[in-house]
């Protein structure tokens, strides 16, 4: 019984310690961002590996999500004779929720896990300590460029996801099922607001990019430097990112869209 209490206390304490380390790590990363701006080449390389390499999976998933929304939305809406509002349904659900959330989940799986594995391996093969020996700050050199690249590419990826999805919904809706194309676009334009919907979606995806990159980089940096430790850290990245994205999405939605 005492043992149980002790273990409980130990695990609680260690999880708080981890949160503290993560916060300290985030502050370190943020303070390194200024030096990244002085060396844009590092950022460009990371934009390539974080953003460009995630482009394909985001585009293809966006297209299919939009097509499924078009198909399912049509069957539901046609019961009420409201097929003309298909565009509103597809675009509102993509721009507000699915775009930021699904692309962030894919981003965590595609780019987040790669970041964790990369940094975990760097730690396991003692490249990070090697850098410290050469008086190169690994946080500034390795972590901050990746963090900034994640924060910048996530809104772009989410915008691509939503845009491709809306076109996909239109392909299915008016190409296959015969919804009027003019109604699809005009109803959409009438009800989607630039500030309330589009900008809030962009803000959401920025927050998700921030959180996902933070978790991925920290898990890699904090990984136990063995092959098993790195594999566990990668798993934790995907699981924790998914939890935080979905949890934060609820909070952000309640805050942003609460008044209407």
């Amino acid at each position: 019984m005492i043992q149980l209490l002790q273990n409980l206390g130990k695990s609680t304490r260690s999880s708080f310690t981890k949160l503290g380390r993560a916060t300290f790590f985030l502050l370190q990363t943020l303070s390194g961002i200024l030096s990244v701006l002085l060396r844009p080449r590092l950022l460009l390389n990371q934009l390539y590996s974080v953003g460009v390499l995630s482009f394909l999976i985001i585009t293809v998933s966006g297209l299919f999500v939009g097509m499924v929304l078009g198909l399912q939305g049509y069957y539901t809406l046609s019961d009420f004779g409201a097929e003309a509002t298909l565009g509103v349904m597809v675009s509102a659900s993509l721009v507000r929720e699915l775009g930021p959330v699904v692309s962030a989940l894919l981003f965590a799986g595609r780019a987040g896990s790669a970041l964790t594995a990369e940094i975990g391996l760097m730690k396991a093969t003692e490249q990070l300590s090697g850098m410290e020996m050469m008086a190169v700050d690994p946080v500034r050199r390795i972590i901050s460029p990746r963090f900034l690249a994640g924060c910048l590419s996530m809104p772009l990826l989410a915008a691509i996801f939503s845009a491709v999805g809306i076109v996909g919904g239109q392909l299915i809706g008016s190409g296959l099922l015969g919804v009027d194309e003019g109604a699809y676009w005009s109803q959409m334009q009438a009800s989607i607001d630039f500030q309330d919907d589009i900008l809030n979606g962009v803000f959401k995806s920025f927050v998700f990019g921030w959180v996902t990159s933070w978790i991925a980089l920290f898990e890699g940096y904090d990984a136990i430097p063995t092959s098993e430790g790195v594999s566990r850290a990668t798993t934790r990245t995907v699981v924790n990112s998914a939890f935080s994205i979905l949890g934060l999405d609820f909070i952000l939605t309640a805050l942003m869209f609460g008044d209407n």
Binding site: S91, V95, L156, A159, I160, S162, V164, I166, I198
Partner: peptide, 10 residues
């Protein structure tokens, strides 16, 4: 994509 969302969708 952002432009598309701003001008075509909203």
């Amino acid at each position: 994509g952002l432009f598309f969302l701003s001008f075509q969708v909203s």
